[in-house]
């Protein structure tokens, strides 16, 4: 009960238990909230407002199928399903053919080839795939090799998921964070990287994917070969082909995709343990340092985080990097374990 004492209107709007009352009329929740209000009667206005907001959100568009349309559509659906049902029965008899073919395999290979070549689209049930997940915490980088020979370098604060064995038709991995891929060429099995709703599809090439959760954007930069990037949720028009030294920047908020050229030396410096900034704001630089050295940086209010700097640090310790920055940006700093204070 006390938990909600200091809630404002918007805290209520977000609260799941509050919603189970105002949106879904859950009787338990209703009992609780009514009782709660008797203890905190001065909150009644906030509760009323929150309730109006949470239950008043609706689509501005108002078009719906008419009764007649609705009935016609359902009739089409039922007819359509009957038709598919019949087709399905035919497919089942093809299945039986296939099992027959497998039986004949015991007798002679030739028979098997004859049947299986008649099969235009073989339906192969794949065994459940075991997925592996590797995670780098802040301050750590690593290299892994996938079962197809592809080499992946993972930056700090990065999670990659991939199947123990790739399927017969494609190679699919999921990345959150930043990773550099050197993909083993295989024309018949495209390699797909999924990251924050952005799909990068290649046959064999080298490219970098930067998709940190919360960054609001995904960057895909290519160093070799050709890459196709698609943003899910936007359809075909969002597909973009990239050539070496081109980078696609996808803004996840506006869902715009933009092609820019990029400098591999800067973008990929992390691979070689080199911290490199080119006209980056202090805000970005501090963020990068936090990730790089696994520290938390606390910045005093007098520091202007929007001034930008350039610099290269090859495998330098944290205090050396901060010293150089402090000298240029005119701040002082203290390091205590993994806490950095900047004034």
């Amino acid at each position: 009960m006390v938990k909600y004492e200091h809630y404002d209107v918007w805290d209520f709007v977000k609260d799941e238990y509050f919603l189970s009352w105002v949106r879904y009329g859950d009787p338990e929740a209703e009992k609780f909230w009514k009782k709660w209000l008797t203890h905190y009667p001065h909150k009644e206005e906030d509760i009323l407002l929150a309730r109006s907001i949470a239950s008043g959100m609706q689509y501005a568009s108002d078009d719906a199928p008419s009764e007649k349309e609705s009935i016609e559509m359902f009739e089409t659906i039922v007819k359509g399903r009957q038709k598919v049902q019949t087709q399905k029965q035919i497919t089942i008899s093809q299945y039986i053919m296939r099992y027959a073919a497998v039986l004949i395999l015991g007798v002679g290979m030739i028979a098997f080839y004859m049947y299986s070549s008649q099969e235009s689209t073989p339906i192969v049930e794949e065994a459940p795939v075991k997925w592996i997940q590797k995670e780098n915490p802040r301050g750590m980088k690593s290299t892994i090799w996938l079962s197809d020979g592809t080499k992946v370098r993972l930056n700090a604060e990065t999670v990659i998921s991939y199947p123990e064995q790739f399927s017969n038709s494609l190679r699919e991995v999921i990345v959150e964070g930043e990773a550099f891929f050197e993909v083993k060429r295989n024309e018949t099995k495209p390699f797909i990287v999924k990251s924050n709703g952005v799909e990068t599809r290649v046959l064999g090439t080298s490219f970098n994917v930067k998709a940190y959760t919360g960054a609001g954007r995904v960057e895909v930069g290519v160093t070799e070969g050709k890459v196709r990037v698609t943003g899910s949720g936007l359809g075909e028009q969002s597909a973009m082909d990239l050539l070496p030294n081109q980078m696609s920047v996808i803004n996840l908020e506006t869902h715009r995709m933009e092609k820019v050229s990029f400098d591999p030396a800067e973008t990929l410096a992390w691979r070689d343990w080199t911290l490199r900034f080119k006209k980056k704001t202090l805000k970005d630089i501090f963020h990068e340092i936090e990730r790089w050295y696994a520290v938390d940086i606390e910045v005093g209010s007098t520091i202007d985080l929007n001034q930008s700097y350039s610099g290269v640090f090859e495998n330098e310790p944290l205090d050396a990097v901060l010293k150089v920055l402090a000298h240029n940006a005119e701040f002082s700093f203290t390091i205590n374990d993994n806490k950095v204070k900047i004034k």
Binding site: E45, L48, L49, R51, S52, I53, G56, M57, Q58, Y59, A60, S61, G233, L234, H255
Partner: peptide
């Protein structure tokens, strides 16, 4: 691109006081 225009249904809201309506 999905438009998803949102409208806040103020009319059928139970809140009647004017300053509430203004906030909504």
């Amino acid at each position: 691109e999905g438009s998803f225009e949102v409208e806040l249904d103020i009319e059928s809201s139970m809140v009647l006081k004017d300053h509430h309506r203004e906030k909504l």
